[in-house]
Design a protein around this nucleic acid. Sequence first.
DNA 1: GCCACTTTACACCCTTGGTT
DNA 2: AACCAAGGGTGTAAAGTGGC
Length: 296
Amino acid sequence: MTKSSLPSLNALRVFATVAREQSFKKAATELGVTQSAISRQINTLEEQLGMRLLQRDNRVHALTATGQLLAPELLRMFEQLQELINKATSSEAANARLLKIGISNELLRWWLGPLLKEFYAIYPHLELEFVALPEYSSSQNAEYLKQLLTQDQLDAVLIMGQLSGRHLQATNLGDTELLFCSTRLESALKSDNAVYSIRESNDWQDWSRIHSPPAHTKTKATDNTAMALDLISLQGGSLLLPSHYRKLLKDAPLKNNSDLNASGSASLRLYTARHKEHELAVIAFSNWLQHVAKRG
DNA sequence: GCCACTTTACACCCTTGGTT
DNA sequence: AACCAAGGGTGTAAAGTGGC
């Protein structure tokens, strides 16, 4: 029998019920349909199988040999199926939970935030709560971030850079390109304007290795991208914008000089505690993020 | 006559495939 | 992407059949 010619689950369920009750009428009552529907399901099933399953005239007398072979196995399978459904539906309630996510304001505003509607449409039983973190991992904050995860204060951390530890599970969500952006299209390297980068990142070092800026180039470190954006909008200048915020170029008065872009070493990563790697909510969030990151 | 089941006609919903 | 028609699956109501 090919896959496409498999009888419908409903027809098999009807047959199993009739076999157990030895009556179309009782089966109809149990399944909440008319006895006519039962009759037709049995007929269709027998036609599909090419043989009779019930010996009957205007009464059900007995199961045929084929019916005797099928009925006990089907009844057992439907019992197992019911158990599985009970288990799945009760665990859905258990899995309806709050996920605490550590993330920077920048990543939330310019990357994850606009995608959340899609997440909630797929996983309506999950709720996300956000806790503000730095944009980049560094030697100063690494231990603190690890503790947040291993001591269950957060379920996941979204951050640029690396956290190491055997109790952590890392998922790479894509390498970062540093977009050289200025308030004006001209290259800031030829003017007096400074280039802003984030203090905790290696962005300036990564960028300098590729573009070897002149020694007189002014650089300024800021705490985060939002601060760098505010400063260059007030004072002019350039910044190294992580490519995850690419959509921002449409909204902010920024121009990207693609000749001066460079690849950064700090990838965007999702970190979770290893003891939570089998939790359905964590798996769902992680899988969805990977899907979103892949799509770009 | 009642009961259990079959047959037939018809309706509704969903999927699929073609068209715009 | 939106629309439409065809076809399949599933349901009901009602009439018919035959045993008890």
